[in-house]
């Protein structure tokens, strides 16, 4: 591996897009307004939303560098499922619907493109070593939740990678943890659906690195969610998914939520 490239901040880091092309478009515009110099996406491009092919030209046009998520890995290689590892039959049924939809509706060209995505991106920004990956640095589909990840554990993961700042997604819920040595561990949330908080906004992270210690802001982003709901219905995606987009409450894939995160949601 060549040594990591030097980049200048701020860095805009997007989590799972879940085919939400409207949120992606809004996020790129918002990041530019905030003068982000580099744009990244941490993977899980498909699933959940409508018309999976729409997001790829947006990513390319905006020069977004993309990490391979478990979903992308599955779709690229046409695996049997999304590798989220649900065990609840209801969760599995919904995961199956969006996976089959995404797999059949993603064109071979973009599947091949996803197959080239790296599992990690490293950069040096403002003297800080920044590592960007999907679930955790050691496992693409490891869920890192705020309430189940001790600080000492996150510190161990960051040290093992020689990173000052680690950025992940995969769970859908954003959080920021300060590490003992002054570093940061960040879950950037996702653009694909709201953060199970009763609001329709989605999230991404803006990392500022230029002066001294790194600082991160979790940006709350509104977009035309009603239009997305309309497109989802036109594609006959499950009404449960549409409800999440319109209400901000997760209705499926709830089994993976730890106690604290589950208690904050409605379902």
């Amino acid at each position: 591996m060549p040594s990591e490239p030097d980049v200048r901040g701020p860095l805009a880091v997007f989590g799972g897009v879940y085919s939400n092309h409207l949120a992606l478009e809004a996020a790129v515009a918002d990041a530019r307004r905030r003068e982000a110099r580099e744009l990244y996406c941490l993977g899980d491009l498909g699933g959940f939303g409508p018309n999976p092919d729409k997001i790829f030209p947006l990513l390319l046009d905006a020069g977004v560098e993309v990490v391979r998520g478990n979903y992308d890995d599955s779709i690229a290689r046409a695996l049997g499922d999304c590798q989220c590892g649900y065990t609840d039959p209801r969760d599995n049924a919904f995961a199956r619907i969006s996976y089959d939809y995404s797999l059949t509706r993603t064109s071979p060209r973009w599947r091949a493109w996803m197959n080239e995505l790296p599992s990690k991106i490293r950069v040096r920004a403002g003297g800080h070593r920044v590592l960007m990956c999907h679930g955790s640095p050691r496992r693409t589909n490891e869920f890192l939740w705020d309430s189940t990840s001790s600080t000492q554990f996150l510190d161990r993961l960051a040290r093992a990678q020689d990173a000052d700042v680690v950025m992940v997604t995969h769970t859908g819920l954003p959080w920021v943890r300060e590490l003992p040595g002054g570093g940061l561990f960040v879950n950037v949330g996702v653009l694909g659906r709201p953060a199970n908080d009763g609001g329709t906004a989605v999230r991404y992270a803006l990392l500022t690195v230029d002066e001294g210690s790194p600082a991160v802001e979790v940006v709350s982003l509104t977009y035309d969610h009603e239009q997305l709901a309309h497109e989802m219905r036109a594609e006959r995606l499950p009404e449960e998914f549409v409800e999440t987009i319109l209400t901000g409450w997760w209705t499926t894939c709830l089994e993976i939520l730890p106690a604290k995160e589950r208690a904050r949601g409605r379902f």
């Binding site: 189940t148 990840s149 001790s150 000492q152 554990f153 161990r156 993961l157």
Partner: peptide, 8 residues
Amino acid sequence: SRAYGVRD
């Protein structure tokens, strides 16, 4: 256990 970075 702290030095081992125990998660839970």
